[in-house]
C-alpha cells in the first residue's frame, strides 16, 4: 500500500494539457520507492477512488487554465460539501468525496498544477510550460518527501494553500 499516491492526469494530445503525463515520467525516476505509486490517467473516473482510499496522501498533478502561463500552483484539497452535478468526469476534490463515502477513507490531498498556454491538438508543450517543467517536478518531489518524512496536516506556509471548491 503506497503512502503517497501521485495522480498525474490530462490529455497528451492536447498540448499543455499533457504536462501531468510528461512530468510523471520524470517523477518515476526521482521518486522510485515502494511507498510511492504514480498513476497516469487521461481523466479522473470513479474507479480511482478506490486507489485513493488506500493512500495516506494523494497528490494530483494537472495543467490549469487559471492564471498566467507557466504559473505554478499548489493547493490543499478538501472534499466538496455539495454533490457533483455530473458523473461523467470528476474533479480531484470530488474524487476525494467518493473515496470517503464509498470506502470510508479520505486521505490528505494536494493539487499541484502548472498553468497552460495552449490546449489545442498537439503533443508539444508551449515554451512557457516546457520551461517550467523542472519546477513542477521539483514541487511534487519536495511535497512527496515532506509527506514521507512525517505527517503533513496542512500545506507548508511557503506554499499557496487554497480550499477546493
Amino acid at each position: 500500500m503506497p503512502r503517497v499516491l501521485i495522480v498525474a492526469y490530462g490529455n497528451r494530445l492536447r498540448s499543455d494539457d499533457g504536462v501531468g503525463w510528461i512530468v510523471a515520467g520524470d517523477l518515476r525516476q526521482r521518486l522510485a520507492s515502494p511507498e510511492v505509486e504514480i498513476l497516469q490517467l487521461t481523466q479522473l473516473l470513479p474507479e480511482v477512488a478506490e486507489s485513493i482510499s488506500h493512500a495516506n496522501t494523494v497528490i494530483f498533478v494537472d495543467a490549469s487554465c487559471d492564471g498566467e502561463p507557466g504559473e505554478l500552483h499548489c493547493r490543499q484539497l478538501t472534499p466538496p460539501p455539495a454533490k457533483a452535478q455530473f458523473s461523467h468526469q470528476l474533479t480531484p476534490a470530488e474524487l476525494l468525496g467518493v473515496a470517503g463515502r464509498l470506502y470510508g477513507a479520505t486521505p490528505q490531498a494536494f493539487c499541484v498544477s502548472l498553468t497552460g498556454e495552449c490546449f489545442e491538438h498537439g503533443e508539444e508543450l508551449s515554451e512557457s510550460v516546457a520551461g517550467r517543467l523542472p519546477q513542477l517536478a521539483s514541487k511534487v518531489e519536495q511535497l512527496t518527501k515532506e509527506v514521507l518524512a512525517g505527517p503533513l496536516a496542512t500545506l507548508p506556509s511557503s506554499q499557496e494553500a487554497e480550499a477546493a471548491s
Binding site: 454533490k83 457533483a84 452535478q85 458523473s87 470530488e94 468525496g97 467518493v98 464509498l102
Partner: peptide, 11 residues
C-alpha cells in the same frame, strides 16, 4: 436532479 449522479447512488 442534483442527486441523480454517482454521489446520490453512493449515499
Amino acid at each position: 436532479p442534483g442527486k441523480s449522479n454517482i454521489f446520490g447512488v453512493a449515499e
